[in-house]
């Protein structure tokens, strides 16, 4: 009963949030200077032709009308068509599709995204895996020995890691491991091994946040009264940690994961894909930004907020299952 009630309320809330985000991006894209039609058609086209195309595309209608029309489309499952790309064009390629611009034959945004998203998912999954592998042992040990040298060590390691700008780190790793070392492939995509290096960059960016949070929540959980009472009740410390402390520490961690880590991951995914020229959604997005391909930008922004909202709901649901107090 609770779960259903909770889910329903959260999904409604989530839809409102996604709606707000979409509206925000939609408005921003239309009030900032720069006419996409000019980019679409190139600089040599007569103003009258430009106006005609713009009107045909509905770009001259008032923003609320455009937004309403867009939302109706989205609800029907149609994310629109790219301004720039042709249906047969490469999935993330940079140039305009061919010499002639064909209004009727533009690529569907949903297909463009569907073509790139598997790559992004692979990269994100790998990044999370690396992050967990790095941060769990370090964070856990730091939390258990809070204030002692393992804690200090993890603190300094994370201070250093968090100070490495991902754009720089990416290039340095390409130089060291790929160009000089020849250990891992780097630019583009030609098999899953191309995801390793970018995933590593992402993991190094996410790990410090996780390490510190794990350390703090484990240390805080250990401070709880029931832990020391448990000792006097006759429960061994080891069991106390594995069965109770970790369970309690997971709640703030889940929250952090849902809000901060996934948010960071989504953002940095775009940057890292750009650095490595990795053909995922992020590269699609950044190229779309340079080309003012509004439908693509719009759809990806909506998609990423939807991902965040969903992860959040799942995480909260998990947290309320672990700690029943959150249900009351």
């Amino acid at each position: 009963m609770f779960a259903l009630n909770f889910l329903l309320r959260r999904i409604v809330q989530g839809i409102v949030i996604i709606g707000l985000v979409t509206l925000l991006i939609f408005t921003l894209l239309r009030v900032v200077p720069g006419d996409p039609v000019r980019i679409m058609l190139g600089p040599m086209v007569a103003p009258s032709v430009m106006e005609q195309v713009a009107t045909e595309l509905g770009l001259r209608d008032p923003i609320p009308v455009q937004f309403g029309r867009y939302m109706l489309q989205v609800m029907k499952g149609d994310l629109g068509h790219s301004f720039i790309r042709n249906a047969q064009g490469g999935s993330t390629g940079g140039s305009r599709g061919g010499e002639t611009f064909d209004l009727q034959n533009r690529a569907k945004v949903s297909e463009l995204i569907a073509n790139t998203i598997p790559y992004s998912i692979l990269l994100a999954a790998l990044a999370i895996l690396f992050t967990v592998l790095i941060s769990f042992p370090l964070g856990f040990v730091a939390g258990v020995y809070s204030g002692k040298w393992p804690d200090r060590l993890s603190l300094y390691v994370s201070s250093v890691l968090v100070s490495l700008p991902n754009v720089w780190l990416g290039i340095v790793l390409i130089l060291l491991l790929s160009a000089w070392g020849g250990i891992l492939p780097a630019i583009g995509y030609n098999g899953p091994s191309y995801a390793i290096l970018p995933a590593l960059v992402l993991a190094i960016e996410l790990a410090p946040v996780m390490i510190r949070s794990i350390a703090v929540s484990v240390a805080n959980s250990l401070q709880e009264n029931y832990v020391s009472v448990g000792e006097v009740r006759g429960i061994k410390r080891r069991r106390m940690i594995t069965h109770h402390v970790l369970r309690n520490a997971s709640i703030p961690l889940l929250n952090l994961f849902g809000i901060q880590v996934i948010g960071m991951l989504l953002g940095s995914l775009f940057v890292v894909e750009y650095i490595f020229n990795y053909p995922g959604v992020g590269l699609l997005m950044i190229n779309a930004v340079f080309q003012r391909d509004f439908p693509i930008i719009q759809a990806i922004a909506m998609l990423s907020s939807a991902v965040l909202v969903c992860v959040n709901i799942l995480v909260d649901l998990a947290a309320t299952n672990i700690d029943r107090r959150l249900q009351y």
């Binding site: 709880e224 009264n225 448990g230 009740r233 006759g234």
Partner: peptide
């Protein structure tokens, strides 16, 4: 502890794991 020797404190509300 726990078997032969038992202890009850003044803070029962925080004496057990709140999530179980």
């Amino acid at each position: 502890r726990g078997r032969e020797i038992a202890y009850i404190g003044s803070d029962p509300a925080n004496a057990l794991d709140p999530t179980l």
